[in-house]
Design a protein around this nucleic acid. Structure first.
Length: 425
RNA sequence: GGAGAGAUGGCCGAGUGGACGAAGGCGCUUGACUCGAAAUCAAGUGUGCGGGUGACCGUACCGAGGGUUCGAAUCCCUCUCUCUCCUCCA
């Protein structure tokens, strides 16, 4: 969330930064609330001080009964005034916070200017798309033919936008998760985390899914818990309202979970296949870094996600998202897009964001630079490493053979117990 | 789900209406002593907000929210969580 104090100190600067993302944003209202809150608190402090001093007079032994009564009557008035000011200050603080929660993170200065996805910048491309001299089959058709993706059963059991993996499909999901987790914990220094899939509202606010994007989340009926849309939510909130030791930073977690998304507003889009489902699995990389270390941490993190695609030998490119396409909480974001030869398109398979202190401020995650020093907000970062359904989709499309079977990337052989998924008959 | 107990600073733990941001201890930091360390002694040691260029000043916070009172860590109400026993369960 935005820092109301910082807004009051530099209104023009903050507004200019925000408008790189969306020229229609205005801070006028939040400034008015913030200033009134400040005045109210100052006056409250003064009156409260007065009240405290007068109150100690009440304890004096040489106060006559009549004087005591007079003083009591005066203090009753003062007390009411103090109470009213305190209440007002609280209201204004809540108003200011509620307003601040609805503003997106100002982009990093390095983020390229632009309005939408067409202005994103290709930073680099890795791998050579394979050449095929026969007509490729899209992954959903291929998966159904192989008997490893069962959309029909999933529709019967759960409705639209679900899949049921079976046989080697189910095993391939599990293999990919294991491979990715082993890589990140073994080579990249992450601690493996398997988090709860249901979280409190506070956690969703901490990582900025709420209050603005409530319609995107599944919520359980009587208890009000939310199904996580990404492991980012429980893993980042592990340290909510904590002050971390500087020596522990950067803290790196690789969280594996199912992810649940209502996909409100995407009706009719990506309705086929594994691309956009209400439930999918993902390995999510999360880092807590110092402000000084966060830019390097971001580069490292995207590199860790790239390693997965390289190990699977899937061609991809790295996009630097422009200011207009950045996610709500991100100040800088790199997307990895994998090449899908059957669909003949690049498709996002990982999104690696640096949130700066945006989430840390919402969730109150701080660190102490040195003993005795004041706590500062950490920087939080996260990125998919990778989305497993889309990875599986990319393997089916990139590794298919003319006879309808699918080769498996070599690194998965130990996990799969086979080198190929054979076509049925 | 039933019965009981509890929630105070980084930790332990006192405190039942005013002198309490809160005794005492532990831990931590700095200084003294020491060749150095240990031990000992002394001082310091929370977070947010508001004001001030600043040393600093003010204010709030004793699980959360409300209430009583001139005044609440302390009294009353509601909620949450934790622990113990029973029940249930993977």
């Amino acid at each position: 969330m935005l820092d109301v104090k910082a807004i009051l100190e530099d209104p023009e600067g903050m507004e200019a930064a925000l408008r790189r993302r969306d020229p229609s944003l205005s801070l006028e209202q939040i400034i008015a609330i913030g200033e009134e809150r400040r005045r109210t608190i100052t006056r409250f402090g003064a009156l409260r001080h007065q009240q405290k001093e007068a109150s100690t007079q009440m304890t004096s032994k040489d106060l006559s009964p009549a004087d005591r009564e007079t003083l009591r009557a005066q203090l009753k008035e003062l007390s009411a005034e103090v109470k009213a000011l305190e209440l007002r200050a609280k209201e204004l603080e809540e108003e200011a916070d509620a307003a601040a929660l609805l503003f997106p993170n100002p982009p990093a200065p390095e983020a390229p200017d632009g309005r939408d996805a067409s202005d994103n910048v290709v930073l680099r491309t890795w791998g050579e798309p394979r050449q095929f001299d026969w007509e490729l089959v899209e992954h959903d058709t291929l998966g159904e033919r192989l008997g490893i993706l069962d959309f029909e059963s999933a529709r019967k059991v759960s409705g639209a936008r679900f899949v049921l993996y079976r046989g080697l499909g189910a095993r391939l999901e599990r293999a990919l998760a294991s491979f990715m987790l082993d890589l990140h914990t073994g080579d990249h220094g992450y601690e493996e985390v398997l988090p709860p899939y249901l979280v409190l509202r506070e956690s969703m606010v901490g990582t900025n899914q709420l209050p603005k994007f409530e319609e995107d989340a599944f919520q359980t009926a009587p208890d009000g818990l939310f199904l996580i849309p990404t492991a980012e939510v429980p893993v980042t909130n592990m340290h909510r309202e904590e002050i971390l030791d500087a020596e522990r930073l950067p803290i790196k977690y690789a969280g594996y979970s199912s992810c649940f998304r209502r996909e409100a507003g995407s009706h009719g889009r990506d309705t086929r296949g594994l691309t956009r489902l209400h439930q999918f699995q993902k390995v999510e990389l999360v880092q807590f870094a110092t402000p000084e270390g966060s830019a390097d941490a971001h580069e490292a993190l995207v590199g860790h996600a790239e390693r997965v695609l390289q190990a699977l030998d899937l061609p991809y490119r790295v996009m630097d998202l422009c200011t207009g396409d950045l996610g709500f909480g991100a100040r800088r974001c790199y997307d990895l897009e994998v090449w899908l030869p059957a669909q003949k398109m690049w498709r996002e398979i990982s999104s690696c964001s640096n949130f700066g202190e945006f989430q840390a401020r919402r969730a109150s995650i701080r660190y102490r630079p040195a003993p005795g020093e004041k706590p500062r907000f950490v920087h939080t970062l996260n990125g998919s490493g990778l989305a497993i359904g889309r990875t599986l989709m990319a393997i089916l499309e990139n590794y298919q053979r003319e006879d309808g079977s699918v080769d498996l990337p070599e690194v998965l052989w130990p996990f799969m117990g086979t080198r190929r998924i054979e076509a049925a008959r």
